[in-house]
């Protein structure tokens, strides 16, 4: 079967609504990683990401029939469910999330590095960025995670967040400005301060 023969996410969700177990298994295998990464970026905790991923697909079982393909595509819809579960987890724990306090039972997975030294520097830099993302206010973090890390369009991110496109855009821009400011402290060479006006 070629790639073009694969059913779309929307097709799978429609079949899940009719009780198709194979469709459910296929969607789980296809989108589990995306949901997990979204939850991990939002929570900073692999354990929470695991829980949220399970919760999202369990909720999907009962709510597949509520999916309206014309309103949003499947991935933003799943992210919208995941977002609610992350929020509930946050309300339950009532703890501030930072990488230092995050669950360390299983560290996030990283791609294989060819050059250990370069890989270490790169990893440190990426870790600084990861911490900066986790330290963003939730509203900005959601926009950054959806638009920059998951590369959703403004429209899809707006569907996931249930807000206007303009709101997503402004939150993303504000979030990126905060990220740049925080990374400037961590790595002045990569993120230099703006030059004084008129400086050549």
């Amino acid at each position: 079967m070629s790639a073009t023969d694969q059913p779309t996410d929307e097709d799978l969700i429609a079949r899940i609504g009719t009780g198709d177990r194979e469709a459910f298994a296929a969607l789980y295998r296809r989108r589990r990683a995306d949901v997990y990464r979204f939850a991990l970026f939002m929570s900073g905790s692999p354990a929470t990401a695991d829980d949220v991923t399970q919760d999202v697909f369990v909720e999907l079982i009962d709510h597949a029939q509520r999916f309206r393909p014309g309103r949003a595509s499947a991935v933003p819809w799943l992210f919208g469910i995941a977002r609610n579960h992350v929020r509930r987890q946050r309300q339950r724990s009532r703890t501030s999330v930072s990488i230092g306090e995050a669950d360390t039972r299983r560290a996030p997975q990283f791609a294989v590095q060819d050059d250990p030294v370069a890989g270490l520097a790169r990893r440190e830099h990426i870790e600084a960025l990861r911490r900066a993302v986790l330290d963003l206010p939730v509203g900005y973090r959601e926009a950054v995670v959806l638009c920059d890390l998951h590369e959703l369009s403004y429209a899809d991110a707006a569907a996931a967040l249930d807000c206007a496109i303009g709101t997503v855009r402004s939150r993303l821009h504000r979030g990126r400005a905060l990220l740049t400011a925080r990374l400037r402290v961590a790595d002045a060479a990569l993120y230099p301060a703006p030059l004084p006006r008129g400086t050549p």
Partner: peptide, 8 residues
């Protein structure tokens, strides 16, 4: 960051 963060 996105590429380096993989799901288990």
């Amino acid at each position: 960051l996105a590429d380096d963060t993989l799901a288990p």
